[in-house]
Protein backbone atom coordinates (compact mmCIF):
# COMPACT_ATOMS: atom_id res chain seq x y z
CA UNK A 1 0.00 0.00 0.00
CA UNK A 2 2.91 2.43 0.32
CA UNK A 3 3.25 2.66 -3.39
CA UNK A 4 -0.16 3.58 -4.51
CA UNK A 5 -0.37 4.95 -7.98
CA UNK A 6 0.19 8.59 -8.35
CA UNK A 7 0.34 10.11 -11.78
CA UNK A 8 3.97 10.14 -12.77
CA UNK A 9 4.04 13.89 -12.91
CA UNK A 10 3.85 13.87 -9.16
CA UNK A 11 6.37 11.38 -8.06
CA UNK A 12 6.99 12.72 -4.63
CA UNK A 13 3.73 12.59 -2.77
CA UNK A 14 4.30 9.66 -0.51
CA UNK A 15 7.87 10.43 0.36
CA UNK A 16 7.39 12.06 3.68
CA UNK A 17 4.60 10.14 5.18
CA UNK A 18 5.62 8.08 8.16
CA UNK A 19 4.22 4.64 8.73
CA UNK A 20 1.59 5.91 11.08
CA UNK A 21 -0.11 7.82 8.35
CA UNK A 22 -0.20 5.19 5.68
CA UNK A 23 -3.80 4.82 4.70
CA UNK A 24 -3.60 1.11 5.03
CA UNK A 25 -7.14 0.84 6.25
CA UNK A 26 -8.62 1.73 2.92
CA UNK A 27 -8.96 -1.43 0.93
CA UNK A 28 -8.21 -0.37 -2.61
CA UNK A 29 -4.76 0.84 -3.56
CA UNK A 30 -5.21 2.35 -6.96
CA UNK A 31 -6.84 5.40 -8.32
CA UNK A 32 -9.01 4.93 -11.36
CA UNK A 33 -7.06 2.92 -13.93
CA UNK A 34 -8.24 4.64 -17.10
CA UNK A 35 -8.19 8.42 -17.20
CA UNK A 36 -11.60 9.84 -16.57
CA UNK A 37 -12.49 13.46 -16.54
CA UNK A 38 -15.06 13.15 -13.86
CA UNK A 39 -14.31 13.21 -10.23
CA UNK A 40 -15.31 9.80 -9.04
CA UNK A 41 -15.10 7.75 -5.92
CA UNK A 42 -16.70 4.58 -7.16
CA UNK A 43 -14.25 2.37 -5.39
CA UNK A 44 -15.19 3.86 -2.04
CA UNK A 45 -18.08 1.48 -1.61
CA UNK A 46 -21.82 1.26 -1.96
CA UNK A 47 -23.34 4.72 -1.99
CA UNK A 48 -26.68 5.14 -0.34
CA UNK A 49 -29.04 7.41 -2.18
CA UNK A 50 -31.81 9.54 -0.85
CA UNK A 51 -35.48 8.80 -1.22
CA UNK A 52 -36.74 9.12 -4.81
CA UNK A 53 -39.68 11.05 -3.43
CA UNK A 54 -37.30 13.90 -2.72
CA UNK A 55 -37.65 14.84 -6.40
CA UNK A 56 -41.11 16.15 -5.58
CA UNK A 57 -39.73 18.46 -2.91
CA UNK A 58 -37.16 19.85 -5.32
CA UNK A 59 -39.71 20.26 -8.10
CA UNK A 60 -42.17 22.04 -5.85
CA UNK A 61 -39.38 24.30 -4.63
CA UNK A 62 -38.29 25.15 -8.14
CA UNK A 63 -41.84 25.81 -9.30
CA UNK A 64 -42.66 28.02 -6.32
CA UNK A 65 -39.47 29.92 -6.88
CA UNK A 66 -40.15 30.36 -10.57
CA UNK A 67 -43.74 31.43 -9.97
CA UNK A 68 -42.73 34.05 -7.42
CA UNK A 69 -39.95 35.52 -9.55
CA UNK A 70 -41.90 35.39 -12.80
CA UNK A 71 -44.96 36.84 -11.10
CA UNK A 72 -42.95 39.72 -9.76
CA UNK A 73 -41.27 40.25 -13.09
CA UNK A 74 -44.52 40.26 -15.01
CA UNK A 75 -46.03 42.71 -12.54
CA UNK A 76 -43.11 45.03 -13.15
CA UNK A 77 -43.39 44.51 -16.86
CA UNK A 78 -47.14 44.94 -17.23
CA UNK A 79 -47.86 47.57 -14.62
CA UNK A 80 -44.70 49.64 -14.65
CA UNK A 81 -43.77 49.01 -18.24
CA UNK A 82 -40.27 47.80 -17.48
CA UNK A 83 -39.14 45.71 -20.42
CA UNK A 84 -36.01 44.36 -18.75
CA UNK A 85 -38.23 42.62 -16.20
CA UNK A 86 -39.74 40.57 -18.99
CA UNK A 87 -36.30 39.29 -20.01
CA UNK A 88 -35.43 38.46 -16.43
CA UNK A 89 -38.69 36.57 -16.12
CA UNK A 90 -38.08 34.61 -19.30
CA UNK A 91 -34.55 33.78 -18.20
CA UNK A 92 -35.74 32.50 -14.83
CA UNK A 93 -38.45 30.49 -16.53
CA UNK A 94 -35.99 28.83 -18.91
CA UNK A 95 -33.55 28.03 -16.11
CA UNK A 96 -36.34 26.60 -14.00
CA UNK A 97 -37.52 24.38 -16.83
CA UNK A 98 -33.99 23.09 -17.39
CA UNK A 99 -33.72 22.48 -13.68
CA UNK A 100 -36.98 20.57 -13.69
CA UNK A 101 -35.76 18.35 -16.48
CA UNK A 102 -32.57 17.47 -14.63
CA UNK A 103 -34.14 17.24 -11.21
CA UNK A 104 -34.47 13.43 -11.09
CA UNK A 105 -30.86 12.95 -12.10
CA UNK A 106 -29.67 15.49 -9.58
CA UNK A 107 -31.54 13.78 -6.81
CA UNK A 108 -30.09 10.45 -7.88
CA UNK A 109 -26.64 11.98 -7.65
CA UNK A 110 -27.01 12.76 -3.96
CA UNK A 111 -25.47 10.03 -1.92
CA UNK A 112 -23.83 9.27 1.36
CA UNK A 113 -21.65 6.53 2.67
CA UNK A 114 -20.85 5.54 6.22
CA UNK A 115 -17.25 4.46 6.10
CA UNK A 116 -15.21 3.07 8.94
CA UNK A 117 -14.24 6.38 10.44
CA UNK A 118 -15.89 9.06 8.41
CA UNK A 119 -19.02 10.10 6.63
CA UNK A 120 -18.69 10.57 2.91
CA UNK A 121 -21.19 12.69 1.03
CA UNK A 122 -21.54 13.51 -2.61
CA UNK A 123 -23.78 15.81 -4.56
CA UNK A 124 -24.17 17.37 -7.98
CA UNK A 125 -23.74 16.38 -11.60
CA UNK A 126 -22.41 19.46 -13.30
CA UNK A 127 -20.85 20.83 -10.14
CA UNK A 128 -19.72 17.77 -8.29
CA UNK A 129 -18.67 17.79 -4.73
CA UNK A 130 -17.47 15.14 -2.33
CA UNK A 131 -17.08 15.80 1.37
CA UNK A 132 -15.49 13.52 3.92
CA UNK A 133 -16.06 14.34 7.57
CA UNK A 134 -14.67 12.18 10.34
CA UNK A 135 -17.35 11.13 12.82
CA UNK A 136 -15.31 12.42 15.71
CA UNK A 137 -15.66 15.99 14.47
CA UNK A 138 -19.41 16.03 14.94
CA UNK A 139 -20.75 18.85 17.01
CA UNK A 140 -24.46 18.27 16.59
CA UNK A 141 -26.99 16.75 14.24
CA UNK A 142 -30.03 18.61 13.05
CA UNK A 143 -33.13 17.08 11.57
CA UNK A 144 -35.46 19.48 9.80
CA UNK A 145 -38.63 18.98 7.82
CA UNK A 146 -40.11 21.42 5.38
CA UNK A 147 -43.85 21.45 4.67
CA UNK A 148 -43.65 19.45 1.45
CA UNK A 149 -41.11 17.06 2.87
CA UNK A 150 -43.32 16.47 5.89
CA UNK A 151 -46.24 15.70 3.66
CA UNK A 152 -44.12 13.11 1.89
CA UNK A 153 -42.70 11.77 5.12
CA UNK A 154 -39.18 13.00 4.43
CA UNK A 155 -36.64 14.81 6.55
CA UNK A 156 -33.32 16.57 6.07
CA UNK A 157 -30.37 15.60 8.19
CA UNK A 158 -27.57 18.02 8.88
CA UNK A 159 -24.24 16.96 10.30
CA UNK A 160 -22.66 20.04 11.85
CA UNK A 161 -18.97 20.36 12.64
CA UNK A 162 -16.92 23.18 14.10
CA UNK A 163 -16.13 24.42 10.63
CA UNK A 164 -18.98 26.36 9.12
CA UNK A 165 -18.21 24.99 5.69
CA UNK A 166 -17.69 21.39 6.66
CA UNK A 167 -21.29 20.65 7.49
CA UNK A 168 -22.85 17.83 5.57
CA UNK A 169 -26.52 18.16 4.86
CA UNK A 170 -28.29 15.09 3.52
CA UNK A 171 -31.72 16.02 2.21
CA UNK A 172 -34.71 13.83 1.52
CA UNK A 173 -34.28 10.91 3.85
CA UNK A 174 -37.31 8.96 4.95
CA UNK A 175 -38.15 10.07 8.48
CA UNK A 176 -37.38 6.72 10.02
CA UNK A 177 -34.10 6.53 8.13
CA UNK A 178 -33.13 10.03 9.22
CA UNK A 179 -33.70 9.22 12.85
CA UNK A 180 -31.86 5.93 12.77
CA UNK A 181 -29.03 7.54 10.83
CA UNK A 182 -28.85 10.30 13.44
CA UNK A 183 -28.66 7.77 16.26
CA UNK A 184 -26.04 5.81 14.40
CA UNK A 185 -23.94 8.90 13.73
CA UNK A 186 -24.17 10.04 17.33
CA UNK A 187 -23.11 6.63 18.47
CA UNK A 188 -20.19 6.59 16.05
CA UNK A 189 -19.17 10.08 17.05
CA UNK A 190 -19.23 9.19 20.73
CA UNK A 191 -16.76 6.40 20.26
CA UNK A 192 -14.43 8.53 18.18
CA UNK A 193 -14.77 11.96 19.53
CA UNK A 194 -11.89 14.32 19.15
CA UNK A 195 -11.27 17.52 20.96
CA UNK A 196 -11.62 20.86 19.35
Amino acid sequence: MPDREVPERNPAVPKHVPESLEPSASPEPSASPEPSERLDLTEAGEWKGVSPKYVVVEIVGTIVNAVVVCGGASLLWLLLDQTWAMWVGILVLVISIINLVFEPRRVRAIGYLLRGDDLLFRRGILFQRFVAVPYGRMQLIDITRGPVARWLGLADLKFVTAAATAGVSIPGLAEGDAESLRDRLVELAESRRAGL
Binding site: R4, V6, P7, R9, N10, V13, V17, L21, P23, A25, S26, A31, S32, P35, S36, E37, R38, L39, D40, L41, R115, D117, D118, L120, F130, A132, P134
Partner: peptide, 14 residues
Protein backbone atom coordinates in the same frame (compact mmCIF):
# COMPACT_ATOMS: atom_id res chain seq x y z
CA UNK B 1 -5.36 16.69 -11.00
CA UNK B 2 -8.60 14.69 -10.90
CA UNK B 3 -7.06 11.43 -9.85
CA UNK B 4 -4.92 13.15 -7.36
CA UNK B 5 -7.92 14.85 -5.82
CA UNK B 6 -9.30 11.43 -5.07
CA UNK B 7 -5.97 10.44 -3.57
CA UNK B 8 -5.92 13.61 -1.53
CA UNK B 9 -9.38 12.94 -0.18
CA UNK B 10 -8.37 9.46 0.81
CA UNK B 11 -5.14 10.53 2.43
CA UNK B 12 -6.57 13.46 4.25
CA UNK B 13 -9.59 11.65 5.59
CA UNK B 14 -7.52 8.71 6.77
Amino acid sequence: DVDEAVVLLKWMST
